[in-house]
Simulated scan of single mutants.
Amino acid sequence: MMGRWIFIRDKRLTRTAKIVLAVIAIAALLAMLPLRLVLGWADPSGRTLRAQAVEGVAWDGLVGELQLGPLPLGLMEVDLMPLPLLIGRAQFALERPDYPGARPFSARVRGSGGNLAISHASGEVPLGGMMAPLPVRTLTMNGFSAQIDGGACVAASGTLGLVVPAMGAMVDAETVLAGEARCEDGSLVVPMTGPSGAERVDFRIAPDGRWTATMSLIGVPPEMATPLIEMGFEQRRNGVGMTASGTL
């Protein structure tokens, strides 16, 4: 009787059965893998994705006060994407939850240190005073993608824009300046224009992480230039302008 029991037990634990059990055990562990651990493994330096509060598992997480580089994204749903893992890439899908007052935003992100890839980015990111003294309120993205390797821009496409609040008679309503992103000598370059063509922002991020943004208002009459100059603009040959810079 004992011999029969051993025979049945050995028959059930075939090599295939052991492999299946091991796969099930690994799958169960992966299913419960905390998102906080995965974010730490994917970006040990914390330069690409930073968060103050992380809840949930890798495949279905919620992150508070999330930052993409220097950009404050706030509350976001963050999910590790399984297919890129097959080629050794930890890529995350970001999406802002739908709640009252939330601005839509979604993107796919991967990277660590000086390397970053963002794709399918669309929506709005409040800037606060990040680009001071430029009077800009919000960064907009529409199908924006960029690949940064070692700090240098190697590929970029889609649209980036800046929302400028009303500034008097010349810009009497909230205005969106937008343009197509491209790489130029390792820098990410976005020449943005407003709806009338008189508003312009030339935005550039150099490989060393230094960014500059020059806002120009072309053809400003003298009577409209004075209040803008009082706001910090400078008189220029073809209108008024202002430059801001910083380091990411």
Rank of each mutant, 00 (worst) to 15 (best):
M170T: 06
G209N: 00
A198K: 09
P191C: 11
L30Q: 05
N115V: 02
I218R: 05
E124C: 04
M231F: 07
E77A: 13
A25I: 15
G151Y: 02
L39T: 00
G194V: 15
L248P: 01
A102W: 08
P44G: 05
A58L: 03
V164T: 09
M32T: 12
P221Y: 11
G128I: 08
R137Q: 09
E55Q: 12
G161R: 01
R50Y: 01
C183R: 08
E223M: 13
E180C: 03
D172Q: 13
E124S: 07
V109Y: 00
R200W: 11
G186Q: 06
G61W: 00
S157M: 06
G111M: 00
T138C: 07
M32H: 11
G40H: 10
A152R: 02
F105I: 07
H120R: 12
I8N: 04
T48G: 00
I87P: 04
N142G: 11
I24G: 09
M131D: 05
M130F: 13
W5T: 12
F144Q: 01
P222G: 10
W59K: 04
G186N: 08
A121V: 08
A155F: 08
L134A: 12
G232W: 06
W59N: 03
R47P: 04
L127G: 07
G88K: 07
E55N: 09
Q235Y: 07
L37S: 08
N115L: 03
L85T: 11
W211L: 06
A244S: 15
E184V: 13
S145R: 04
G158H: 01
G74Y: 05
F7Q: 14
R89L: 09
